[in-house]
Structures are given as C-alpha cells and as structure tokens.
C-alpha cells in the first residue's frame, strides 16, 4: 500500500476536532477523490498526507514511512522526494520563468530529467511559454505549469487540492484531462480533494468526509 491513513485524529487550536479517526488507503497508480462540504477537513487531511502538518493520534504511512515519527527535516525530505502537491492557487514562484518553475521541484530533489521536462511541457502545451513569467499566464496555463512542476520529479504520490477550483469550466476540464492522463501515463497515485461529484466520478475511488469522519 502506498498511502495508508489509519484512525487519524486532528483538532484545531482551541480543541475543536476536525478529523475524528479517519482511515483510508491508496495503492500505487490508484486515484482517489476526497469530497466533502466546506470545513469538513478535506484539505486538512491532504495537508497531513503531504507531511505539512502534524496530527494528534493515529498514523499515516507513505511508502512504508510513518509520518508521526518524522522530524521537520524528515518531513521536508519526504515532500521533496516522495510526493508532489498541486494547489488551488497554483503557488508558482513568480520570480522564476515557466521553464525554471517546471523543473524546480525535480531539481530540489536532485531528479531533474530534461527530456522528461520537455515531454511534460509538450504534453501540457507549455512549450511556447517556457521563457515567460507566471504573472503573464492565464489561470489555466498557470495550473498546467503547477501540474508539470509536480510531475517533473516523478513522485509516487500526487496530492491535489481543488486544482480546478480557480478555473473556468473549459480550462477546468482541460486541466483535469491533462492531469488524469499524465497520472495514468506515469503510474502516479493521486489523492484529489474536490467539491465536484462529476470530477470525483472520473477517479478510481471516492471517499466522502463528513463531520470529521469518512462517511
């Protein structure tokens, strides 16, 4: 099992529980949609899986590594080498060109493959935009760069938090198609947080969070 979430509990500061014993699994090359209402804890669970936040109880295991025992450098190392994240707001580095943004994560991980980068740029329709800066791109183009950046390091797990939430319908469909296609092509597991039942329906599995539990 690539990602195993077992009975994880997490509270907000002040003690209000957000996750109350959540468990789910994700295998290699599998795709999972995590749905739920606003405030149900979807993003929190994704952040925990991304080793960006800590939990009070339970365990998350990624590729055999338990996250609860990792210190800050260990978590950073995991984020660099084992997983990638796509955010709703793209979160590209505004001071770097598309080319540099695309390869940034892979280079951080010491896994840059220029041929693969070129292939990704081609697949994502970014070949003509490589020397431009993010602020000059449309939202859809920026999100395609973010997907390229995430996949350039060939992660085992891709985490995506509402990746099409900031895009119009056409751009949204286009970005999702590309992401699912590339995930399938590379055998990357995908955990995707979404509000949309339609998007969730296109993935292998679906989990619905409600009141801090998997419904």
């Amino acid at each position: 099992m690539l990602l195993k979430i077992e009975n994880v509990r997490k509270s907000y500061p002040g003690g209000r529980p957000v996750l109350q014993g959540v468990s789910l699994d994700l295998d290699t090359a599998q795709t999972l949609a995590l749905t739920g209402e606003s405030g149900s804890g979807k993003s929190t669970l994704l952040n925990l899986a991304a080793a960006m936040d800590s939990f009070e109880d339970g365990e998350i295991t990624l590729d055999g590594t338990g996250l609860s025992s990792l210190d800050d450098p260990g978590r950073a190392d995991l984020r660099r080498h084992s997983l990638s994240i796509v955010f709703q707001q793209f979160n590209l580095i505004p001071s770097l060109t598309v080319r540099k943004n695309l390869s940034f994560h892979a280079r951080l991980a010491g896994q840059e493959d220029k041929d693969w980068n070129a292939h990704l740029a081609d697949r994502l329709g970014l070949s003509d935009l490589l020397d431009r800066y993010p602020e000059t791109l449309s939202g859809g183009q920026q999100q395609r760069v973010a997907i390229g950046r995430a996949l350039a390091s060939r992660p085992k797990l891709l985490l995506a938090d509402e990746p099409t939430g900031n895009l119009d319908e056409t751009a949204s469909a286009n970005v999702l198609d590309l992401m699912l296609s590339l995930v399938s092509e590379t055998g990357t597991a995908l955990l995707l947080v979404t509000h949309s039942s339609e998007i969730a329906g296109r993935l292998d599995k679906r989990a619905h969070l409600s009141g801090g539990r998997i419904a």
Partner: peptide
C-alpha cells in the same frame, strides 16, 4: 509568507 510557503511545501525546512 505567500512566497515562502510554496518553497516550504516543495521540501525545504523552515530552518533552511
């Protein structure tokens, strides 16, 4: 923060 957080998310520690 909006400039640093993505770099942190991509695998750099806060100390670094």
């Amino acid at each position: 923060l909006p400039q640093i957080a993505p770099i942190w998310a991509l695998g750099l520690t806060r100390a670094r």
